[in-house]
């Protein structure tokens, strides 16, 4: 179903956007304290349009708020990578690089979508993802090829996130059913690998062979952290339904 495929995509963007927003007020320097929410707002903006479109196609009267705030973690369909905790700057930047390195070619392909809303999102998101790759990539390079401490943290991040990469390229039955509206993720592995290889060579990092691939996000099987994140994100709307400012 197309609306479910749009929901998966929207969930990826909202969850990662919320994770990035958790840095707001906590980043190591003012410059990054603005840069991280900038990127978060790019992602949340994309999520809003996708939720609205998904709700419209579903036709059950759910708007973007209903889809974002009134579903529990088992109903969330994001891939596991985006819900990984922020940890340190190395984890956060690598997670961002991985996501953007997939989504840039994804949105490039989606510019030919048969759905005008998806087309519109794609035109905007391609530019945002290009910047996210640049911003996160430059940090990965500087941390990986930086001090002994930063290089060790960067290697830890690469090892910790390795098992979440393959799942990003799985196409759920809903995504496959949305052919023509949304691109196939499996087709984008080559573009992703090329982006990562270029950054990693500058960062003096080796791409590790993942011992196994952790999956389950697209089936609603998430890590514990997502429940905590949603509790924070949804509490205001659940306590004050329909609240606006």
């Amino acid at each position: 179903m197309v609306w479910q495929a749009l929901l998966e995509l929207a969930d990826d963007h909202l969850v990662l956007g919320h994770r990035l927003s958790e840095w707001c007020g906590h980043a190591p320097m003012l410059e990054e304290d603005l840069a991280l929410p900038n990127m978060a707002l790019d992602l949340i903006g994309t999520a809003r349009t996708l939720y609205a479109r998904a709700g419209e196609i579903e036709g059950a009267g759910r708007d973007e708020d209903a889809l974002a705030y009134l579903r529990g973690e088992r109903d969330y369909r994001n891939c596991l990578l985006v819900e990984r905790p922020n940890e340190d700057f190395a984890h956060t930047m690598l997670r961002q690089l991985y996501f953007a390195a997939l989504m840039k070619p994804y949105w490039e392909a989606a510019m030919g979508s048969s759905d005008p809303v998806v087309q519109g999102v794609a035109g905007k998101a391609v530019k945002e993802m290009a910047y996210h790759i640049r911003h996160a990539g430059e940090w990965v390079i500087r941390l990986g090829d930086g001090t002994e401490e930063s290089a060790a943290r960067m290697r830890d991040a690469v090892a910790a996130l390795a098992i979440y990469v393959d799942e990003m390229f799985d196409d759920s039955p809903a995504a496959l059913a949305a052919a023509g509206v949304l691109p196939r993720r499996a087709d984008l592995r080559g573009a992703f690998d090329a982006t990562i290889a270029a950054v990693f060579s500058g960062a003096m990092l080796d791409q590790p062979a993942a011992p196994y691939a952790q999956r389950g996000g697209r089936d609603g099987l998430h890590s514990e952290g997502l429940g905590h994140m949603l509790a924070v994100m949804q509490s205001l709307h659940r306590q004050h339904p329909g609240a606006v400012w």
């Binding site: 320097m29 003012l30 410059e31 603005l34 840069a35 900038n38 911003h135 430059e138 940090w139 500087r142």
Partner: peptide, 20 residues
């Protein structure tokens, strides 16, 4: 003005702080 380690990060920081 902004703080940054080098000219590439300085441009990014300038973009993020002053052209939002």
């Amino acid at each position: 003005s902004i703080h940054a380690a080098d000219e590439v990060l300085a441009l990014q920081a300038a973009r993020d702080v002053y052209t939002r």
